[in-house]
Each structure stands twice: as C-alpha cells, then as structure tokens.
C-alpha cells in the first residue's frame, strides 16, 4: 500500500509538468496532498500513534480542503485567464522533470544504504517533489504558479521528514502547518494586490525593482 501511494505521488508530480492551467495544477496539488495524508494515516495506523493521526487530519483539512479552496476563490476573484504561462512547453518540461527524477534517485541511492529500498524510494520521491516544485516556480510565468510550486516543494520536505528515523518533532510539524497556512494567506493577498495594481500576475514583467 505504501509503495502504491509513493508511486501515485511520483506520477502526480510528473504530471504537473504537463499541466497548463490553474485548476488542473490545483487539482494535482490536491491529489498529491491526499496521497501524503493517506501515507501519514497508514503510518499512524501501523505505529498506533495519536500524534500522527492528528498530523494526518491536519494535512487533510489544510492541504486537501482549505488551501485549494482558498485558491479556487482567488482564481475566481482575479477572473483573468487561467493559463499558467509556460516559459518551456509541456514536452520539454516533462523531459527536464524526468532528468530531475534521475538526479533525485542518484541522490537517494547515494545517501541511503542499499537494503532499505522503501526509504530509498521515499527519499528520492521527496527530493523529486521538491525539485519539481522549484522547477515549476522557475518555468511558469504567472504568480499563482510560483505559490503552488512553493507548496509542492513543501510537500516534498514533509515527505523527506518521514524518512528521518522518528520523524520531525510533533510541535515542529504543527508549527509548520500554521506557517504554511499563514504564508498561503499572505501570498494569496499579495497576488490579489499585484493583480489589482498591475492588472496582471505576470511575474516576468515585475522587474522594476532591480538595482
């Protein structure tokens, strides 16, 4: 079951490279977060730990329900075209993402020793999700894509934390969730303001502040 979920995460992540519209990207993020929540739930069941149950619940309610909902509202408010604006087209993006996957695998295999295949895969998936998130931030023009790229990266970090024996301390985990929620709100507000002032959210045109 764990393997299945990890492969699902890998697939969903790779698919984000092909996405060209906001709603689809948001859906991908939602599915990815759902997989993550299920993964955590599985671990919680296996270890019988209440803390992990709470984290899984938080993950589900925040990243699957609340944050995507906030973005839905935002997209409707902005009302501009819902294209991401691609610097690189979908095919080239996919190729690059595959290369990033290879690099992640190389990293995981050089960090984690050979017999721990599950951990190896988890780490490589985590690394893959992080790199893809950053790649999305680089290669997509609109500001919304940057925010969602950041959230994807954060998912990767969460996944990586599960590889560490014992995981992250409970309070750190909780604090992180609130961090994300607050940052999403602020970023959403920023995007809304940028749209209101410049009538677009095209980041490539926001270069007036260079030194």
């Amino acid at each position: 079951m764990t393997w299945l979920l990890l492969f699902a995460i890998l697939l969903i992540t790779a698919e984000t490279a092909l996405v060209t519209r906001f709603p689809a990207l948001l859906r991908n993020f939602r599915y990815q977060s759902l997989c993550l929540a299920l993964l955590t739930l599985l671990a919680a069941y296996r270890e019988g730990s209440i803390e992990l149950y709470i984290i899984a619940g938080l993950l589900f309610s925040l990243k699957v329900l609340l944050i995507p909902h906030l973005f839905d509202v935002l997209i409707k408010r902005i009302g501009s075209s819902d294209h991401l604006g691609l610097f690189l087209n979908a095919q080239v993006s996919l190729l690059i993402v595959i290369v990033l996957g290879l690099i992640s695998w190389y990293f995981a295999s050089s960090v984690v020793a050979a017999p721990a295949y599950l951990q190896q895969l988890t780490l490589s998936a985590a690394c893959f999700v992080m790199l893809t998130g950053i790649f999305l931030m680089v290669s997509r023009i609109k500001a919304l894509a940057q925010v969602i790229g950041l959230l994807l990266t954060e998912n990767g970090i969460f996944l990586a934390a599960t590889v560490i024996p014992g995981g992250m301390p409970f309070f750190v985990e909780i604090a992180l969730f609130f961090d994300i929620l607050v940052s999403v709100m602020i970023l959403g507000l920023f995007i809304y303001r940028i749209n209101a002032i410049f009538t677009h959210i095209d980041v490539s045109k926001l270069s007036g502040l260079r030194g």
Binding site: F87, L100, I103, S104, Y106, F107, S110, V111, C127, M130, L131, I134, F135, M137, V138, S139, I141, Q146, V203, S204, L206, S207, G208, L209, R210, G211
Partner: peptide
C-alpha cells in the same frame, strides 16, 4: 542580479542540483 524572480529561483534550483550531484 537581473531583477527577474524566475532567474533568482533558478539560481536556487541550479545550486540544489549541483549540490546533489556533488554529494
């Protein structure tokens, strides 16, 4: 420092990839 946010983020990506390759 070209003023492009994309460029700045790509510096981070490039650094990450480089570090992974050098690990």
């Amino acid at each position: 420092q070209a003023g492009s946010i994309h460029l700045y983020i790509s510096y981070i990506l490039a650094t990450l990839v480089l570090l992974i390759l050098l690990v």
